[in-house]
């Protein structure tokens, strides 16, 4: 299968089955990474950050980014079109019988099950980012020193960021781009990537 066709197919599936907005696309992107190896988990985390800090719907931004990374500008267009095609088809159908859809007992009860499932999928995807950030498997494999397994500075920053994004009243309403920018500065100043 050509890479373009495969991109379209993968993102069509994500558009069809991701329920509940932006982040719901994330588990599908992890699945694509597992299956194709087009990009790593680390690259995905970077894409999430950039998608959150730029204008436009997060899901669309992530599709564009993955498409571009995989197959350049045609890839970015094809991945995005793949993602939105199911939406267009479904909404155009629903628009025809709006009332019936809104009042349907089946639709309501299906979503009663779909919503927690979508949350569970996003949580699982989130945990793989956490594992990437908190654990240093490479360093541990080299030294076999248990202290090396855990990245302490990252954990400290994580706790601080959680406090400011979710607990501290004065900052918790701020746009994510503020925290992403602050984290970038901290990363540069304290050399979080270990690059010199």
């Amino acid at each position: 299968m050509s890479i373009y066709l495969q991109l379209f197919y993968e993102f069509f599936k994500a558009g069809l089955f991701a329920v509940g907005g932006g982040m719901a696309t994330l588990p599908f992107l992890y699945n694509i990474s597992d299956k194709t190896g087009w990009f790593s988990y680390g690259q995905l985390a970077d894409m999430v950050a950039i998608s959150e800090s730029t204008p436009g719907p997060i899901g669309v931004n992530m599709a564009t980014y993955v498409g571009f990374t995989t197959a350049g500008i045609p890839g970015s267009i094809i991945a995005t079109v793949g993602l939105i095609t199911p939406s267009i088809i479904i909404i155009l159908i629903i628009a025809g019988f709006l009332k019936a859809f809104q009042d349907s007992k089946y639709v309501k009860s299906a979503f009663y099950g779909l919503r927690p499932a979508s949350t569970g999928l996003i949580a699982a995807a989130g945990l793989s980012v956490v594992a990437l950030v908190v654990l240093q498997k490479d360093l541990y494999a080299e030294s076999h020193n248990l202290i090396d397994l855990i990245n302490l500075p990252n954990i400290v920053l994580m706790v601080i960021l959680y406090f400011f994004t979710a607990r501290f009243k004065k900052t918790k309403g701020l746009h994510p781009v503020v925290f992403i920018a602050a984290s970038a500065v901290i990363g540069i100043v304290f050399r979080f990537g270990g690059a010199v």
Binding site: M23, A49, A123, G126, V129, V133, F179, I188, F192
Partner: peptide, 26 residues
Amino acid sequence: AIVQNAFAGIRVCVCVLIFNAVLKLW
């Protein structure tokens, strides 16, 4: 190096943002 270090910091932030999104959806 500056880009790599920036993204190492940003990845930590992404964890927290996803965690907050999960809490809200939860």
